[in-house]
Design a protein around this nucleic acid. Structure first.
Lengths: 217, 217
DNA sequence: TAGATTGTTAATCGATTAACAATC
DNA sequence: TAGATTGTTAATCGATTAACAATC
């Protein structure tokens, strides 16, 4: 593969690529042709030198004196991330959170297609969220395997999290997004990403208590 | 303040504290009295030396040969983060995502009380989510100021994000959780945290494409 | 050419971790 | 006491950034 890295790529680089991509797509939509690392730095709050360095891990995509061609850079970054083709998603949990995720347009724009939704509540089974009919969770293993789905999203109640995760993995899922507060155990072959609003709030909260006195109730 | 740090605390330390806290609360619930950094390391996937180092930024809370007293460590970490008292939250957007957040129990358990919900859709105004009656977004400024709310959550459509953010900040919000894919601009006095499932997926996706061949459609 | 901006080096900065003396 | 585990130092590791030669 042309984009295959020669050295180990720092985690931080991979975290920033989606950020660059988002801004680049925006610029492309605005009809811009090229962009400098300086401008990209303003738009993303990242040091321009860092942007240039991040990109050179994968090749040299810019033109000295000019900048980066936006259309081709979008293309390169998408290829690096593996976002240049469609990925099917299995969503487990058809509650408010599940519905929000299934209806979120941004996913489809980036090639993420939710093609299966599961719930344990039989009253929800058979209802539709967008184009997809909710299936019973007992059909998870078969459907995920049949559709060859590699990405799973956990939007279930906490006590179901680990069991559902195990089932998804057994059915072939390799990437999991966990929207549950539970610490889910996965084998090292699976990439797990946790999103808990509590963690995020607690984290930002620290800075609040330092900045101003805070009203202690 | 007893917990006031003497040196600059690395960002990573603050990010890990909520993780430790979650596990510690779990252990407390299980009736454990003490925990070693080794055990905490297993449960959080963090190097034990790092846990010890992280904690010593704020004092020495452990006992050599014994470990850490769980009850008092929970207390200390909560105080460090500012999670030892109640924080009111303003939630903007009463759609699926907003409902999911408002109904999420974990928030309340950590002292985060959603006390105001706003929406621009007049059909939603007056309806109830949990205990809270949805207000029209035009009441945002007054309510947020009156209730002295410092934390805002953006769960609105993308094109409304920046404007709502501006209103929240003008009304006194200092911490913002952005569940919108938009890059929101905030003054340096405001702490912003972005959560976009697309970014998270793109990020994990990179590792998938390296691990196995991936089925290119 | 003159001006702009990349790609890359080298210096700096900061974070992680191994190791161990202190001590419960 | 002997064993366990902290707190802390020092070494390692890795990431960020300033600076500038290359070059469009």
């Amino acid at each position: 593969m042309a984009d295959e890295p020669s050295k180990r790529i720092p985690e931080g680089v991979i975290e920033r690529l989606p950020l660059y991509l988002g801004v680049l797509i925006q610029l492309r939509q605005d009809g811009q042709a090229t962009v400098s690392s300086a401008r990209l730095g303003e738009l993303t709050d990242v040091n321009p030198a860092q942007i240039r360095r991040d990109l050179t891990y994968f090749g040299s995509f810019g033109k000295r004196g000019v900048g980066y061609d936006i259309v081709s850079l979008v293309d390169r970054v998408q290829r690096i991330l593996g976002a240049d083709h469609v990925h099917r998603l299995a969503l487990v949990g058809a509650g408010h959170l599940g519905s929000a995720i299934a209806n979120y347009n941004g996913l489809r724009q980036h090639g993420f297609h939710v093609t299966a939704i599961f719930d344990a509540d039989s009253r929800k089974v058979g209802t539709r969220i967008g184009d997809i009919i909710v299936q019973h969770i007992d059909d998870l293993t078969r459907t995920v395997a049949d559709q060859n789905i590699r990405i799973g999203v956990l939007a279930v109640p906490p006590d179901a999290a680990q069991e559902v995760a195990d089932r998804l993995i057994a059915a072939g899922v390799r990437i999991m997004l966990n929207y549950t507060p539970v610490i889910v155990r996965v084998p090292s072959t699976v990439t797990l990403h946790n999103t808990d609003p509590v963690h995020e709030l607690l984290h930002t909260l620290y800075y609040l208590s330092r900045i101003d006195g805070v009203d202690r109730v």
